[in-house]
Nucleic acid binder design. Structure first.
Length: 277
DNA sequence: GCCCAGGGAATCG
DNA sequence: CGATTCCATGGG
């Protein structure tokens, strides 16, 4: 890792990292792009303003301590994406997907925030998911100074479905409350899922109303860094049908979730791609 | 198996 | 422009 402390900022030099591709690819919903191309957002109880020029990133008003303790892991800077992409690229479709968006990284997000965020994602589109989560934080999250932390388990578990009506979350409001209550009571222990085999984790998460196979898989991947988790949304189903009818190559499957990030973005964004099905 | 439940975004005519 | 479609889950 290469970085310097510059006044109140951290300046990081990092290859295989692009803000648009990482923060605006459907894994995180709390970052907004500013007019100058930088991003502002919150993760756990840390607010961040980050800008970039090529491989140089500036984390504004971030102490070295906070960077090492939090953002370094959050942006998955311990993982060698160059090696991963090299391995994936033995497959020609994956090679194209990796070249199309070489700066995607899998964020290591908080499991509680991820659980609620992906419950909200059910049958929903990204702009609206962001709006609902933003209102959730404004109403019930801690004020960090004009920007709001994600509400705690204690806070949400004490609320009723009616309390969530200003969020305009629709039928998902009751799922949010159910999730909060089951996590608060300990019936679903998020910390325990971290140490569980992935199949057990799926079972735990699916105890919650509003968590089906797709949402559970997203939470395992994005909230628990289970890199073999493989969420199949409509886009990924299309990718699998068209390009991998017999499944992913074996050298990819142990990191199928990370591969999925490249494929998902490629399928959604690249105009050249032509699905026959 | 099929329809429906919020609501906003994307796509179509 | 208005109309239609999309979306993941659970309940009837």
């Amino acid at each position: 890792m290469e970085y310097i402390v510059d006044g109140n900022d951290i300046v990081l030099y990092q290859e295989d990292f692009n803000l648009d591709q990482t923060l605006d690819c459907g894994q995180a919903f709390r970052f907004v792009k500013n007019a100058d191309g930088s991003y502002s957002g919150v993760a756990s109880h840390y607010a961040l303003h980050i800008s970039s020029h090529g491989d140089e990133f500036r984390l504004h008003n971030v102490s070295e301590d906070e960077f090492i303790k939090f953002w370094y892991d959050y942006f998955d800077l311990t993982t060698n994406y160059k090696e991963l992409k090299k391995r994936f690229s033995q497959d020609s479709i994956m090679e194209q997907a990796c070249k199309f968006a070489p700066g995607i990284r899998l964020l290591r997000q908080d499991s509680w925030e991820t659980l609620i965020s992906f419950i909200i994602s059910a049958n929903n589109n990204i702009p609206r998911i962001k709006g609902i989560i933003s209102r959730l934080c404004e109403y019930y999250g801690e004020d960090l100074g004009g920007i709001y932390a994600f509400p705690t388990v204690e806070m949400l578990s004490a609320l009723s479905v009616e309390d969530l009506s200003p969020l305009r979350a629709g039928f998902r409001a009751k799922y949010i409350i159910d999730a909060a209550q089951r996590v608060h009571s300990g019936e679903v222990n998020l910390d325990a899922i971290t140490k569980m085999p992935i199949e057990e984790g799926r079972g735990e998460l699916m105890k919650i109303y509003g968590v089906g196979p797709k949402v559970a898989e997203c939470v395992l991947l994005f909230g628990f860094y289970k890199v073999e988790a493989f969420p199949l949304d409509i886009w990924m189903k299309r990718v699998m049908e068209n390009f991998y009818p017999d499944g992913l190559p074996s050298f990819i499957s142990s990191h199928a979730g990370i591969a999925q990030q490249y494929l998902f973005h490629y399928a959604r964004t690249c105009a050249d791609i032509n699905f026959t099905k």
